[in-house]
Amino acid sequence: MPDAGAQQAGLKADRRLMLLEAAIRKYQYRKDALLEVLHTAQELYGYLDRDLLIHISKLLRLPPSHVYGVATFYNLFKLKKPGTHVVTVCMGTACYVKGAEDLVLAVEREFNVKRGGTTADGKLSLFVTRCIGACAMAPNAIVDGETIGKATPEVVLKKIRAIMEAEKD
């Protein structure tokens, strides 16, 4: 049974909401479970929008500013809707030394998107991260969850073009 506050907060009473509230119950509405709850919410919804944050703050009985402060402190949490496809380039030391910057520049140029941003049509987001732990294969890029090691701009661009093409059909 979704919490009554949910509709108030403007959230649809769907499966995602049921799962989120189940997770919160599992943590017994503990305030210290905020990070876990935000993780779950982002997994379910893809990003954390305002209504979701309001709802979470009510259920955990936490001040809204606290929830917002935590959600924006950690890089992983996204408050804006990401693009349909996501490219993440590792800019950790090992990858940087091996030319990760060139990967970022190539994607920025070809798809007219800035690091941390999404294309105007909402199709592609470009994020940078600091080390995914595959440094021996540097430089690394992740395209829709798939890691490309020893990446070159050509390979990364080709991969992105391929998934964007596939989308069209």
Binding site: L34, H39, V70, N75, L76
Partner: peptide, 25 residues
């Protein structure tokens, strides 16, 4: 298990406490 969320400083020993307690690290 507790998951971080993308903050290097959370590995610092007092920040890790804050993070596990659900606060800004």
């Amino acid at each position: 298990l507790r998951l971080g969320a993308g903050a290097f400083v959370a590995g610092e020993e007092t920040a890790i406490l804050a993070s596990i307690e659900g606060r800004r690290a």
